[in-house]
Design a protein around this nucleic acid. Structure first.
Lengths: 126, 126
DNA sequence: CATGACGGTATCATTTCCGATACTATGGGC
DNA sequence: GCCCATAGTATCGGAAATGATACCGTCATG
């Protein structure tokens, strides 16, 4: 479901860059990983953090992250259901990457307001 | 033409991660940036480095990188045409990000062979 | 016995991406 | 006159990613 994995080693030295990119690409994976770096989260907790992701997409992204060995999915046999998502060792190994993305974003990206005052660009600040 | 830019600040703290990701996402941008980190390149030189990218795509990706302020496009009024691509200051500021991606890929990614011997996974080595 | 919480699936429509292919301009060399 | 090189554009179509919406099962509560 994600972008096709590298079928051939078609980009020689830079290939590693693309390979990594493909794994964490996918509209919401970056943010999900970022939030999971801060600790285990339940399904609906993640939903609240990503207000604009549909349930369908969130499930799909989490499943891919799980298949790629980045997150661990723990289901508790309770009612109502309880499912926790946490990072695996491999998932945590992405921390430098995620942090590099975040730092660059904080320092250089800007976000466009689509509503009114088109000249307003807000600097990132948390 | 790239993925839609963030129209709303819809992912709070992790937003910077996604924002950066969107800018360097796009099938070939990562590798292109990686190669340009090593120096200025002409259009066809890049093509040779990315044997599987079509002319159409390469042009598109370079145009986006240009619009995002990462690369500088210099056209020489010669015949046959000569166009050089180099990184801008902003482009070079991505170096830590690209390098983080590359290092992770070198250390953790593996590439699938699509032909035969399905159990063979080659470790990355340049 | 209807409702809500939680964590999903299923199905369909749309948007976006990307590849294949063909075409263009110009001047120099044969 | 024809071909070549360079750096593109234009057009078409298919595949993949994403969004919208509706539905499911179970127990607890009212």
């Amino acid at each position: 479901m994600p972008r096709i994995r590298h079928k051939q080693l078609d980009c020689s030295p830079g290939c590693a860059v693309e390979a990594t990119l493909e794994l964490i690409d996918g509209k919401w994976k970056g943010v999900i990983l970022f939030h999971l770096l801060q600790g285990t989260l339940r399904f609906n907790a993640i939903r609240k953090l990503l207000p604009n992701v549909t349930q369908r997409m969130l499930t799909a992204q989490l499943r891919e992250l799980e298949q790629d060995g980045f997150v661990l999915r723990t289901v508790y046999a309770e009612v109502p259901p309880k499912v926790e998502y946490s990072l695996t060792e491999r998932g945590r190994s992405l921390e430098p990457v995620i942090m590099a993305l975040k730092h660059w974003g904080d320092a250089h990206a800007y976000f466009e307001k689509k509503t009114a005052s088109p000249e307003v660009f807000a600097a990132v600040a948390e």
